[in-house]
Simulated assay, not measured.
Amino acid sequence: MNLPNILTLFRILLIPLCVFVFYLPFAWSYTASALIFALAGVTDWLDGYLARRLNQSTPFGAFLDPVADKLMVVIVLTLLVERMGVWWFTLPAMIIIGREVLISALREWMAELGKRTSVAVSNVGKFKTALQMISIFILLLAAPERSGVWIISGVIVMYIAAALTLWSMFVYLRAAAPEFKLDSK
């Protein structure tokens, strides 16, 4: 167990705390849940940086880090879908969640074929993730009664992230396309 792995585990432990704080009946719960989410985002960056810088990359960390990321995004998006309760927010959230499931399965399958590097994280994927995090942070921060510019800004960024999500999904699928064989020969 090294520091990057401890940070990844800490990020996973922040998820139930974020959910708990999100549902607290206090005005500050929006700000607190947004700050918890931001802390998780910082630990995501920091654990990767430290793993590379300290040469502490491990198979356990390589497995757990993307799992922690996806758990945090999917669970908090689900909270926001419940809070917003409108189709025009549910749509980009479904795109993001659906893509995460599809690409996780694709990466696992490609790893079984020994070709995981052909579906490695791209710069588009990193930019998409950054926009998702920014959007989620803004939307967590925005109390429903204070909607206005914060909600609109968060939703606009979410739609941009969803578009990049589709783009990066097609990039990954195109990279894996040679492995899709329809016949069994």
Rank of each mutant, 00 (worst) to 15 (best):
N2S: 05
P4V: 07
I6Q: 12
I6H: 10
L7Y: 00
T8L: 00
T8Q: 00
T8H: 00
R11C: 02
I12E: 03
I12H: 04
I15R: 11
P16V: 06
L17M: 12
L17C: 09
C18G: 11
C18S: 15
C18I: 10
V19E: 05
V19W: 04
V21L: 08
L24Q: 11
P25N: 08
F26R: 15
Y30T: 10
Y30G: 14
T31C: 15
A34E: 09
L35F: 13
L35C: 13
L39C: 11
A40Y: 11
A40L: 10
G41S: 04
G41C: 04
T43I: 03
W45L: 09
L46P: 02
Y49S: 08
L50N: 06
A51W: 01
Q56R: 09
S57A: 14
G61A: 09
A62D: 10
F63G: 15
L64A: 04
V67T: 03
A68D: 00
D69F: 00
K70A: 00
K70W: 00
M72D: 04
V73E: 07
V73Q: 07
V73N: 07
T78N: 14
E82H: 13
R83Y: 00
R83K: 01
W87E: 12
F89I: 02
A93S: 07
A93W: 02
A93H: 03
M94C: 06
I96T: 01
I96M: 02
I97K: 09
G98N: 07
V101N: 10
V101G: 10
V101F: 09
L102C: 14
L102W: 12
A105G: 06
L106Y: 03
E108H: 14
E108S: 15
W109N: 06
M110T: 02
L113S: 05
L113E: 03
G114H: 06
G114C: 08
K115N: 11
K115M: 14
R116P: 04
R116K: 08
R116N: 05
R116A: 10
R116F: 05
S118K: 14
A120G: 10
V121W: 04
S122N: 12
N123R: 13
V124W: 08
K126Y: 02
F127W: 11
T129Y: 13
L131S: 02
Q132Y: 02
M133H: 07
M133Y: 06
M133S: 08
I136E: 02
F137H: 01
L139Q: 00
L140W: 00
A142F: 02
A143M: 09
P144L: 02
E145A: 12
R146V: 11
R146L: 14
R146H: 14
V149A: 15
I151E: 12
I152D: 13
V157I: 06
V157G: 03
M158G: 08
Y159P: 04
Y159D: 04
I160C: 07
I160D: 06
I160P: 05
A161S: 05
A163E: 05
L164F: 01
T165N: 09
T165M: 09
L166Q: 06
L166W: 06
W167T: 14
F170N: 07
V171P: 12
A176D: 02
A176V: 01
P178R: 13
E179V: 10
F180R: 05
K181M: 07
D183R: 11
D183Y: 14
